[in-house]
Amino acid sequence: MMPFLLAEFAMFENILPLYVYCIGSHEQKHLLRPDGYPAHQLFLCRSGMGIFRIVGSSDLVMTPGTMLILPAGVPHEYFPDQSEDAWELGFVAFSGSASDAILAHLGNRTPTLLKKNQFHKHWNKLESLWQLINLNRENGFWESSRSMYDMLLSVLEEQTQQEVKQRIKPIGQPNTALQEAIKLIHDHYNERLHLSNLARAVGYSVQHFHRLFVSIYGVTPMLYIQQIRMRRSIQLFHENPSMTVEQVAQQLGMETSYFIRIFKRTYGQTPKQFMK
């Protein structure tokens, strides 16, 4: 068990774009929150079974190995099922200017029971994060922010990979040409990638490549490239807080004004507002 810890980083709430609000794990009892919780929460069920009752939606049942995303301010209650095993529930609450954007990718800002996942990997990350905050070392607020981002990114990566696999299933055998196109995009996202060049590189006409890409990945090739660039920009801002907007745009192969416009369209704020 990881006793409840409230992260005492209040003075950094306006500095860190992502920070831990509280963290822990215990044998969960009935809990009612008619006004919701002030921070977003990620729950991990290690054993037993429990029910999340969300106002205005169906009950969400957590079984061992499942995870749940719960946005801030959503009225709810949760309680153990009448099973013999104790309901061991791990949790971490997070907030910050970047938390809404991350949440939008994980659960579209609604309570979401996440799909089958590599649970032990995520639980180990939760324990490491708890230890980090428990030590309360100098500069621990920066380290915990990085660890929180790593954990959420790991969950997002896994969920995204599962969605892609589900889209590929109806096609039958994996499309090696499209897989090669995806590799090209990830290897050269910071260069000028034209649709015609991508299609030609994998041996398709532009129209057939575009149609097949959308049918499998759910977005156009150009929007896929844009999403890769925006996610990379967030990573750059976190890894290098001293980088300017112009430098990040250059790293992505984008003109600064265009980068700012796309960033705001994607995350609802300019890069400078995001970094404050």
Rank of each mutant, 00 (worst) to 15 (best):
D85F: 02
Y37W: 13
M49H: 10
Y217D: 10
L60S: 06
D187L: 11
M222A: 06
I133G: 07
H188A: 10
D59G: 04
Y78V: 07
E180S: 11
L113S: 14
V164Y: 12
R265I: 02
V155G: 06
L135R: 15
H120R: 05
Y78S: 09
M148D: 06
R232P: 05
H186I: 02
R211Q: 13
V61P: 13
R211A: 12
Q131V: 00
L44Y: 10
R137W: 01
M254L: 13
I262Q: 05
K183N: 15
V92R: 03
L70P: 05
P17C: 03
L223C: 08
P271N: 06
S128V: 01
F4S: 03
T266L: 03
P111H: 03
K169S: 07
D150R: 14
Y267T: 01
C22V: 02
V55H: 11
M230F: 07
Q131I: 00
Q227N: 15
A93D: 10
T220E: 09
Y19F: 15
N117K: 08
T244I: 02
L32E: 15
Y224H: 14
Y149E: 07
E8W: 00
Y267G: 02
M275L: 13
Y267P: 00
P241C: 14
R200W: 06
P111M: 03
K116G: 11
S145D: 10
S242I: 09
A101K: 05
G73D: 12
F43C: 05
P174I: 10
L18V: 04
R192E: 15
K264E: 01
Q118W: 01
T220P: 07
Q269T: 07
V92N: 02
L113N: 12
R200P: 02
S58E: 14
Q82S: 15
I182C: 14
E27M: 02
P38E: 04
L68F: 11
I234T: 09
L42H: 09
G36M: 06
K276T: 05
T160E: 06
M275I: 12
G172Y: 09
R261C: 04
E127V: 15
G203E: 12
Q161F: 01
R261E: 15
P34F: 06
S95I: 05
L132Q: 12
L178A: 04
Q162I: 08
Q166L: 11
I234Y: 02
F263H: 07
I234W: 00
G48M: 06
V20N: 01
L32Y: 04
L6P: 00
V92P: 04
E255Y: 09
T270K: 11
V219K: 15
I225S: 04
N124R: 11
L42V: 12
G90M: 13
Q159I: 00
Q162E: 05
L89M: 10
G268Y: 03
N190K: 06
Q41N: 08
S205I: 07
D100I: 10
A177Y: 09
A177M: 08
G65P: 08
